[in-house]
């Protein structure tokens, strides 16, 4: 951080209308390889769907290789509580085991979210045994395109904890190779890695 941050005199104060007034929650799903399911990653607060995708990409698309993102407005996803009476195609997400994230498992056509859940339990493989089912109207899903870059093409392993750990490990190994190792190996090193 630069010293410039030590004395910040703002040119202007806060906006008249706080930015938070416009924010809506969006649930983000990531796809790790083409053709694979979209997996629940978390959610972001965003001003609109385009920004939800941008935030989702930076928050959830940089932990591992990721080729696709979905952003769905949170109120558009239901697990059976409030019923949505919209007719159309619903995307079905299943949580197979407790602790597992929800994964996209296919689509059903239905008159309402309740019917979509019933149809999913009957027609989607694994749904009957799933711990939890979510459905969302497909038209509410905002998705990245096939040419969009999410996972960076330039080497950015240093951004990740494991990238940093592997650099530190390489340096430790250099130290060990230089033979001043015994004490380190017994105590610190084993604990740390």
């Amino acid at each position: 951080m630069s010293k410039i941050r030590e004395h910040i005199t703002l040119v202007e104060g806060d906006l008249d209308t706080p930015i938070e007034g416009d924010l809506e929650p969006y649930v983000i799903f990531t796809q790790l390889a083409t053709g694979r399911p979209y997996i629940y990653a978390g959610w972001v607060d965003a001003i609109d769907a385009a920004m939800a995708i941008q935030f989702g990409r930076e928050h959830y698309g940089q932990d591992q290789k990721c080729v696709g993102l979905w952003a769905i407005p949170k109120p558009a996803i239901t697990a059976g509580g409030a019923e949505m009476t919209a007719r159309g195609r619903y995307e079905v997400f299943l949580r197979a085991e407790s602790g597992e994230p929800h994964r996209s498992a296919g689509c059903v056509e239905a008159e309402s979210s309740r019917e979509a859940l019933d149809t999913a339990r009957r027609d989607i493989s694994g749904a009957a045994e799933a711990r939890s089912i979510w459905v969302a109207l497909s038209e509410r899903i905002v998705a990245t395109g096939p040419d969009d870059v999410i996972w960076r093409l330039t080497d950015q392993t240093y951004r990740m904890a494991r990238g940093y750990a592997s650099e530190v490990r390489a340096k430790w190994e250099e130290v060990r190779a230089r033979k001043d190792i015994e004490e380190y190996e017994k105590d610190d090193l084993k604990e740390m890695f």
Binding site: I4, E20, V44, D45, A46, F55, H59, T154, D155, Q156
Partner: peptide, 29 residues
């Protein structure tokens, strides 16, 4: 990168920091 922790909202703070890192990664390459 000086905006880290100071951007107008949390989501943007993370996004803007990430984009700043991109620029530095590009410069490095």
């Amino acid at each position: 990168s000086d905006w880290t922790g100071l951007a107008p909202m949390l989501e943007e703070d993370i996004a803007f920091s990430s984009l700043a890192q991109d620029e530095i990664a590009h410069a490095k390459a």
